[in-house]
């Protein structure tokens, strides 16, 4: 899922400082699961903003609502009634949701979250990046461990000389992805695969190729 994290209160406050009535729109998708932009977080943020603004002598009226998904025009459309008479909208969705709202509505739309990465849950309250979304998966070559995003240098023929005691040179808390790959390949009896020189990656399927589009004609309607 998409992992996001709330921006500092002050930063959000500055984005809406000039507006009197603001809608706080949560998202019931990924950001609910990673506890950054669900119904609860939306209400907490709205309450905190009301209190802060009142203390500053600039009272804020808030409306809160949590959309099923902000990354789907169908659910964005349904926000019209909620949003129609507010001055600004704070979206607690990932960057996709913010853009979908901005595309659909003429209100001033601002993000409450920083969209961090595609990852999963390690333990309650801990999320970790696992996929670099490069558009051309190579996990078959690396024992199911992604060097694109888990190696700090995205090395395809690792590990580099900064790997020590299983950790990456950038931080003793960060696992060296290539150490993990090595161990996994060893366990699976496939170490010889690591002797093949992995050729340069074609990054055109990644972000470097410009905005990407994914089409499934068989499920298109009309």
């Amino acid at each position: 899922m998409i992992i996001a994290q709330q921006k500092p209160i002050q930063e959000i406050a500055e984005m809406i400082a000039e507006y009197k009535k603001v809608a706080f729109i949560g998202c019931a998708g990924c950001v609910t699961v990673c506890l950054s932009g669900g119904e609860k977080e939306t209400e907490i943020l709205a309450t905190a903003m009301r209190i802060k603004r009142k203390l500053e002598g600039n009272p804020l009226e808030t409306v809160t609502h949590t959309a099923t998904r902000q990354c789907d025009p169908e659910y964005v459309e349904a926000l019209e009634d909620v949003i129609k008479d507010v001055d600004a909208v704070v979206s607690l969705a990932c960057g996709v949701g913010v853009q979908y709202l901005a595309e659909r509505f003429d209100n001033w739309i601002v993000p409450a979250l920083n969209t961090n990465f595609a990852g999963g849950s390690r333990e309650h309250g801990v999320w970790e990046e696992n996929c670099g979304m490069c558009g051309n998966c190579i996990l078959d070559k690396t024992g199911g461990i992604c060097p694109i995003v888990r190696c700090s240098k995205s090395i395809l023929n690792g590990p580099c000389g900064g790997s020590q005691n299983g950790k990456c040179e950038i931080d003793k808390e960060v696992d060296c992805a290539w150490q993990l790959i090595y161990e996994r390949m060893k366990k699976m009896g496939k170490l010889e695969k690591l002797m093949e020189i992995e050729p340069p990656k074609d990054w055109s399927t990644s972000r470097d190729g410009g905005p990407r589009k994914s089409v499934r004609e068989d499920v298109m309607i009309g």
Partner: peptide, 29 residues
């Protein structure tokens, strides 16, 4: 040919690294 130290250690820790190719590939190319 070498990978290079990560930018986190330098005087521009906020820079974007490239790593389009790795040192192995650079040798080969």
């Amino acid at each position: 040919c070498l990978a290079g130290d990560h930018q986190r250690f330098g005087n521009h820790p906020g820079s974007k690294n490239v790593y389009d190719i790795d040192s192995m590939q650079l040798i080969y190319l």
